[in-house]
């Protein structure tokens, strides 16, 4: 059984039918990616999984349990953490406080301290800035903080919404390197991206989302070789 199973999911924003019956799965231990252009419904998918948006119909099962009607804070406790689009760091809090907030659901102080060390090892640049207000960080550092913060919830499933957005190519490379390391240490990842090239290289399984529908689903490597994806998303004709 897959760790996450989404079936025939529909989401509306008022009259906008943003997700029109999408189905996909994320296997435990893997990286799955959802690629698509702006407005396709990628963020809506992640927001719905996290409980910020209510589905109109369809089911979301995490580890066999239905979570479609659950409150966001309870979903985090089940083991799903998200680094949202645009990073969403709390600019009025220090880097250290942002990391603490990431571990909000946990009471095992010693384990949290150990996880923080592990995360700071992944993102050494954050260690130098622990006391700084996170609003003063660069875009790349804020992205790192958003991922680090999500990791401190010790999720079984990590949702990443466009971690490459607005970042220089060199930093994007670093961040994708770290995403792979996170996955190798056992965390399942659902990655949402417009940067199809990077995303398909990092993922095991890929899905292509177009205006609220999944139009292609395949092994990520095969997907990156397919004509449709090469033309529409990788700019190769």
């Amino acid at each position: 059984m897959a760790l996450l199973e989404v079936q025939d999911l529909h989401v509306h924003y008022g009259a906008v039918h943003a997700l029109q019956g999408i189905s996909f799965t994320v296997e435990e231990g893997q990286v799955a990616t959802l690629i698509g252009s702006n407005g396709a419904g990628k963020s809506t998918t992640l927001r719905t999984i996290s409980g910020l948006v209510r589905p109109s119909s369809g089911s979301i099962r995490f580890d066999g349990q239905h979570i479609g009607a659950m409150a966001p804070h309870k979903i985090v406790r089940l083991g799903i953490a998200q680094s949202p689009e645009g990073r969403g760091v709390f600019a009025n809090l220090t880097v250290h406080e942002n990391l603490e907030i990431g571990a909000y659901t946990r009471n095992d102080r010693a384990e949290v301290a150990r996880d923080r060390e592990r995360v700071l090892h992944l993102f050494p640049r954050l260690r130098e800035r622990l006391k700084q207000l996170s609003g003063t960080l660069s875009g790349g550092e804020q992205q790192m903080l958003a991922i680090a913060r999500a990791l401190l919830a010790r999720p079984r499933l990590l949702l990443l919404d466009e971690p490459s957005l607005g970042l220089a190519p060199q930093i994007v490379k670093t961040i994708f390197q770290i995403i792979r390391e996170i996955n190798e240490s056992g965390t399942t990842i659902l990655l949402v991206e417009q940067n199809a090239h990077m995303a398909l290289r990092a993922a095991n399984q890929g899905y292509v989302l177009e205006v609220g529908k999944i139009v292609l689903a395949d092994d990520a490597h095969k997907l990156s070789q397919s004509d449709e994806v090469r033309k529409a998303y990788l700019g190769i004709s």
Partner: peptide, 17 residues
């Protein structure tokens, strides 16, 4: 800390649990 987080951004605060 949670109050300050909610005051800054309610939705992201909910994503923190």
């Amino acid at each position: 800390r949670a109050m300050r987080a909610v005051s800054y951004d309610t939705k992201t605060a909910a994503l923190m649990g």
